[in-house]
């Protein structure tokens, strides 16, 4: 069996990088609390997954991502629809939305904790605030990008408003909506982990803070690997559903 050159590169590149990392820690005798060698991180990962101690944390983070993503997307789609359909309303609220959109959500995080407590609610609210805007912007763009002739076709055929929306406008907007959803999904992952940094005793974010403050460098590195893989996985789920929904492109 011959391997595809790209597949070989995908195996060789990380192997080389890990090799260099290992060589560096050995050759310069780097103390493990600064940069643990790869095998220490691998052992830690094995302990986390085989020992099962990571599952509650992973579940907690995934739960916040899912809740924040679903609620934030639903809100973004709904408001995006209203603003795309009612330009008068958009002109009225656009300046405030721009202010909220550009305000760094990390700065709002303590406020959310103040308002919604240290529990799950404030974590989900922070995640929702990060998912909401990209989805809203994508929805507005998508619904507005209908070619004028397409809109004339709907008038010629005398489509009802519902037919126009569900048969023409919404399907045409799907590509732009998906761009928003993809950004939103990545933001949801960041938001969930960030919210766990700030409060609580569960979640991947909490584990990172715990590892950092107790000088457990192998655990910290393992968590970096896990969160990076989680981000990629969440993004890929959206890319796959996009491919499936937009197979006509």
């Amino acid at each position: 069996m011959s391997l595809h050159p790209r597949a070989i590169m995908m195996l060789v590149t990380p192997a080389v990088l890990i090799g260099l990392w290992w060589l560096y820690t050995v050759a310069f005798a780097i103390p493990p609390y600064l940069l643990p060698p790869p095998q220490a991180v691998a052992t830690e990962l094995w302990r986390l997954f085989a020992g099962g101690s990571i599952w509650p944390h992973l579940g907690h983070t995934l739960g916040i991502i899912a809740a924040g993503f679903v609620l934030g997307s639903a809100g973004g789609l709904a408001l995006g629809f209203v603003l795309a359909k009612l330009p008068a309303v958009e002109r009225l609220v656009a300046p405030y939305l721009l202010f909220l959109q550009t305000a760094p959500k990390i700065a709002l995080a303590p406020l959310f904790i103040l308002w919604f407590g240290l529990g799950l609610t404030s974590k989900i609210v922070l995640t929702v605030s990060l998912v909401f805007f990209p989805v809203m912007v994508g929805t507005i763009l998508g619904l507005r990008s209908l070619p004028p002739m397409m809109s004339e076709l709907c008038s010629i055929l005398r489509l009802t408003p519902a037919q126009r929306f569900f048969r023409v406008e919404l399907p045409s907007a799907v590509p732009e909506i998906f761009s928003g959803l993809k950004v939103g999904a990545v933001q949801a992952t960041i938001g969930a982990i960030l919210s766990e940094w700030l409060s609580g005793g569960t979640g991947l974010g909490y584990l990172m803070v715990f590892a950092g403050t107790t000088y457990k460098a192998p655990l910290l590195f393992a968590m970096v690997v896990v969160t990076a893989l989680l981000g990629i996985a969440v993004y890929q789920v959206l890319v796959l559903s996009e491919k499936w929904l937009l197979s006509w492109r």
Binding site: P147, M149, M150, E152, L153, I156, L157, R158, L159, V168, P171, S172, W248, R249
Partner: peptide, 15 residues
């Protein structure tokens, strides 16, 4: 709508 057919400059098909 069934009384008038319209062909545009571009095909305007639903992709």
């Amino acid at each position: 709508g069934s009384e008038v057919g319209f062909v545009f400059q571009e095909p305007v098909l639903l992709p």
